[in-house]
Design a protein around this nucleic acid. Structure first.
Length: 430
RNA sequence: GCCCAGGUAGUGUAGUGGCCUAUCAUGUCGGCCUGUCACGCCGACGACUCGGAUUCGAAUUCCGACCUGGGCGCCA
């Protein structure tokens, strides 16, 4: 009966393990075979005098990264990693690996990201790479747990759509029989429609697609969005949910992912403190104006240099609130007493934007007016607008980038490190 | 979309006109080695993205193609 490597302890008498050959060190009369499964690496020790010759020959012949089965006696010994080793009685090569390998799984020699992504299945055998995706899985689990326990309903909305959600960004056109169609850039309109359907609290974790030809370490053409929408809530309510969610995700990772955090050899992992500061847009602009050479005026969008300067000043997660209505999408609710600013917010990490959200416009006439002001045609949104004519609760929500959350949490240098099979300007395979 | 940088063994690199029959590491193969843990030692194998140009001579300069990384804009 196979057991995980981690469960082989000095107290075991015998053990059977399966895994990949991480390394073979042949010292002549003594050979060491390191076998790796997803729980760890164990040493199989082959002394010439105690092990059958056919096993010794097989161990010497096996290529790195082959899949093997080893059964034998467990010996407690301080000199071995983990304080134990297996002396094999059975050694079987289940699946032989070809050589040379496209990249070095044992990480003696580094590999460039491009090389790694070409052979992602091998790259992901590296413990420090695998750790990222185990942690990402825990993040997804934490988000689900948090939102379900807060009474949110999980929904799934179409990824093939007929129109843009907010204009601006480029969409991927696709062939949909005789019709024009696109991959969705955001579930925004659909989650709002479910507020119109009376669901009150909804969320979705799903793919979004942006056809922008950007070439940066923080953009993807296919990303995962954690999206939430809540009825009878304003922007402040959903901001509180957002910061609370972020903290509970960090706590989950801290609690459940110790070995993975260790494998990553992170400098520091710490749970952010709440509440995150609420920085009005006008003040953010002021900070950026003082700290950067580039002139920035009220009403400008916050560019990369400004974002970096403000991030340095704030030093941790923070919200930028009270944005000018002119630079936010049509569905953001303007303040009643000053319609030039709106109830929109961005959640920022010092490195980049993580989330944006707002209280939404729920009044049909105002929404149509704002769509027109953005130079868009309300008729192409009629499927979206119709629910606003038949009773629409006031509501607010946000979208949070899953990859950016993982990237900033783990200090990854490139967002592609947070996706198994990234889609960027040049990469469509694997 | 604009701009910049780059492409050398399986992998990661050195090499800016002749000293390149191309460096080093890792790997692979062969040999030696009974406590390795980046095992060590000896030997071998393996590469200048493609096409054109300049030149007596090009990995190195120029032009084009293809591929890649990054910055900006925009955004999650």
């Amino acid at each position: 009966m196979r057991i995980p490597v981690r469960e082989v302890t000095p107290g075991c008498e015998t053990a059977e393990i399966c895994g990949f050959v991480h390394e073979v060190r042949d010292l002549g009369g003594l050979a060491f075979l390191l076998v790796r499964d997803r729980t760890g690496i164990i040493q199989v020790t082959v002394p010439k005098k105690k092990v059958a010759p056919h096993i010794i020959d097989a161990v010497r012949d096996v290529s790195r990264e082959s899949v093997v089965r080893v059964k034998g006696t467990v010996r407690a010994i301080d000199k071995a990693p983990g304080g134990r080793e297996i002396i094999p009685e059975v050694f079987e090569v289940i699946s032989k690996s070809e050589s040379p390998l496209p990249l070095d799984v044992a990480e003696k020699v580094p590999a460039e990201l491009d090389t790694r992504l070409d052979s992602r299945f091998l790259d992901a055998r590296r413990p420090r790479v695998a750790a990222v995706f185990h942690i990402r899985s825990a993040v997804a689990q934490a988000v689900h747990e948090y939102l379900f326990s807060a009474g949110f309903v999980n929904i799934t909305t179409p990824k093939i759509v007929a129109a843009a959600t907010e204009g601006g960004t480029e969409l991927f056109p696709i062939a949909y029989f005789e019709k024009e169609a696109f991959l969705n850039q955001s579930p925004q309109l659909y989650k709002q429609m479910m507020i119109g359907a009376g669901f009150e609290k909804v969320f979705e974790i799903g793919p979004i697609f942006r056809a922008e030809e950007h070439n940066t370490t923080k953009h993807l053409n296919e990303a995962t969005s954690i999206d939430l929408e809540m009825a009878f809530a304003d922007q402040n309510t959903v901001m509180e949910i957002l910061e609370d969610l972020i903290v509970s995700v960090y706590r989950k990772v801290e609690k459940d992912c110790g070995p993975f955090l260790e494998a990553m050899e992170l400098d520091g992992f710490s749970v952010p403190k709440t509440p995150f500061p609420r920085l009005p847009y006008a003040e953010a602009i002021e900070i950026a104006g003082k700290k950067t050479d580039e002139p920035i005026r009220y009403g400008d969008d916050i560019g990369t240099a400004a974002e970096k300067a403000i991030g340095e000043e704030m030093g941790g997660h923070y919200f930028i609130v009270d944005w000018p209505t002119a630079i936010k999408p049509y569905y953001a609710m303007p303040y009643e007493d000053d319609p030039s600013i709106c109830r929109a917010f961005d959640l920022m990490h010092p490195r980049m934007e993580l989330s944006s959200g707002a209280q939404r416009v729920h009044q049909y006439d105002l929404l149509v007016a704002q769509i027109r002001e953005k130079g868009l045609n309300p008729e192409s949104f009629s499927f979206y607008l119709t629910p606003f004519r038949y009773g629409m609760p006031p509501h607010a929500g946000w979208g949070l980038g899953m990859e950016r959350l993982v990237m900033t949490m783990l200090g990854l240098p490139n967002i592609r490190e947070a996706v198994l099979f990234p889609r960027d300007r040049h990469r469509l395979v694997p």
